[in-house]
Design a protein around this nucleic acid. Structure first.
Lengths: 234, 234
DNA sequence: CGGGTTGCCTACCGAGTGGTAGATAGCAAC
DNA sequence: GTTGCTATCTACCACTCGGTAGGCAACCCG
């Protein structure tokens, strides 16, 4: 046993991976340390050698997810400040972060339900700054007349995040609402995310085609107010 | 029922109420029978006299919620078939069902995460019929040119349900993203739901003002006709 | 070589879990 | 009174939980 002491993957990373999967699937209290250790292929005390307590493991799993999030942040920042297709880039980049591993969405969702007061500072530090940037983007679009004037930017962003996180977390179970599941298991998720992005665009842009053109990043506003025929704000 | 010989309120209903609250707050495994019994004011074996097992109690809680849902169904049906403001009525009626008791949303969300295969038939039987009705409504609106042609009706509905359920379930924790929380605790939820309904309208209607006018309910056109170029954009 | 560290193990602990057995008290009908 | 039913209780059960104690083998470094 233990011939391969220097296995290719760090045992700590293996523990984090399996813990993430089981926490996401069964919840924190529902996934026992024994089960996690068994999934890794070790005994429970060995697991507790790497993480001092179950709660320590939970924080490690959370930190691991946030570390992955921080990896995509540079691309997100670049996309948010680039000249074109800002909306498309930011939205799809964020969505793909969760789609790449739906356990991230499920884990985040469970933690928000179980420990909202503990998640609040994490949310504020990791995504609050983004909301400000996107709010500026939206308000600029409103000045240019490309974005609905009656948007509440902060609330809009919260709803879009909600849509992405919960949409991915519940994708398997909630698509039971959509008919034609048999034989279309491949294309259904695509329909699902395509419509999600369409809703996001339609909720933002007066002319959805503007989503691809983007909003002029420079502070100038030469583009005239286009097609503001029926502004039915409340 | 309503014999009222023992107590003013049926003890079974008290158990269901407290179990709903604790299951929603801590999850099924996180809420113990002792805690639920203590909340009611009885001992654990007394609770197990009314519900044969913890799983029996869980099914009872679920059945209780579905019973409440069935109470609003007639209003929903009336709203969906009335001549005007169909969209507004159905959307707000559904949203208010969860807003009236956010534990319903949290409970539903947790069950979808914990037991998706068990929730699937419940979803199909209780909300699948509604999606068909609303899909017809959307397709009719597309024929009339009031609704975006590139909507995927089934997917759109799933996203709106997702938005309402998860939006209410996470309202307290997710609004941490929105600044200005202090001193505005009263108006923030209103901003939140107002924007939610705005997103739903904007995702549906080409001219959001149509939401209040509604779509002509009489079948002016044969409903079998599909739109001409309804393929979703990529 | 020998001590120290690392990583994993078996065996065990107290606490808490869902669930059961059986006694008790109130009440209604005969 | 007696019987029977309902609803609650105390006491207890087997089991699982997170966590600890201590031993053991393999490595690193002097």
């Amino acid at each position: 046993m233990a011939n391969e002491r220097s296995k290719g993957v760090d045992i700590t990373q293996q523990i984090l991976a399996h813990a993430t999967r089981l926490f996401a699937a069964r919840g924190f209290v529902g996934a026992s340390l024994r089960d996690i250790a068994k999934a890794v292929g070790i005994r429970k005390p060995s697991l507790l050698y790497h993480f001092n307590s179950k709660d320590d493991l939970r924080r490690g799993v959370l930190a691991s997810m946030l570390a992955h999030w921080n990896e995509v942040v540079p691309r997100l920042l670049k996309a948010a400040t680039s000249g074109h297709e800002q909306f498309e880039a930011v939205a799809t980049e964020t969505l793909e972060f969760f789609r790449a591993d739906p356990d991230r969405a499920r884990l985040l969702l469970r933690e928000l339900l179980d420990r909202p007061e503990e998640m609040e500072p994490l949310i504020e530090s990791h995504v609050q700054p983004w909301t400000k940037i996107i709010c500026d983007y939206i308000r600029k679009g409103q000045q240019q007349g490309r974005v609905h004037a009656d948007i509440d930017p902060e609330a809009y962003i919260v709803h879009m995040i909600n849509l992405m996180v919960c949409g991915v977390a519940l994708q398997d179970s909630i698509t039971a609402l959509m008919p034609g599941r048999p034989a279309t298991d491949e294309v259904l998720p695509e329909r699902y995310v395509t419509e999600l992005l369409r809703v996001a665009r339609a909720g933002l842009f007066i002319d959805p085609a503007s989503a691809r053109a983007g909003i002029d990043p420079p502070d100038a506003l030469p583009s005239g107010v286009r097609d503001s025929s029926g502004d039915a704000a409340e």
